[in-house]
Amino acid sequence: MEEITDGVNSMNLATDSQKKNRIQVSNTKKPLFFYVNLAKRYMQQYNDVELSALGMAIATVVTVAEILKNNGLAIEKKIMTTTVDIKDDSRGRPVQKAKIEITLVKSDKFDELMAEAKEEKETAEAQVQS
């Protein structure tokens, strides 16, 4: 029975990881604003983005979502929490980890705010060059 469950879980993970608008966040690999900027690009391309994290990286996902919301760029569409079994090689048995998925959609002002930010950046770059 456990083998069937593992098979179904890995099938679900395989289809989930193929979602084009999903960002799987790690709290060790990249800085916070890497994920903020990546989420902005995904929202530009797909209109929404799904931020996903396990365990300690959950705080990073929540922070990224809050930055985007507080800057008026995104609106929360869905938050889902669950636990998943992760195989821990050092212990030889599965370990349960908390998982969060936050789906954000572009706010009404998203395109306007992104255009303003781009204009400000270009103005600042022009001032540095002169």
Rank of each mutant, 00 (worst) to 15 (best):
E119A: 14
Y46N: 14
I58L: 03
K78T: 08
E76V: 14
S107T: 02
S17W: 04
P31T: 10
Y42F: 15
E125S: 01
T15Q: 06
Q127N: 07
K106D: 01
N12D: 03
K118E: 15
E50L: 09
A57K: 00
E122L: 15
A14T: 09
V62P: 01
K99I: 03
I75C: 06
N27D: 14
L13A: 13
G7S: 14
Q96A: 15
M56C: 00
I75M: 09
I102A: 02
E125L: 12
A65C: 04
Q96W: 06
E76Y: 02
A65G: 01
N27W: 05
I79D: 02
K69L: 06
I67Y: 05
L73Y: 12
I75Y: 06
M56Q: 14
K121Y: 13
K106S: 08
M56Y: 08
A53Y: 03
L51N: 05
K118S: 12
S130T: 07
T123V: 11
E50P: 00
Q24S: 12
F34N: 09
T83M: 15
V64W: 05
D89T: 06
A57N: 03
D89L: 15
E3F: 10
T103L: 05
L73H: 01
Y46L: 04
E116Y: 05
V8A: 13
D111K: 13
Y42P: 00
R22Y: 06
R91V: 08
L73C: 03
Q129A: 15
A57E: 03
T63F: 02
Q96F: 12
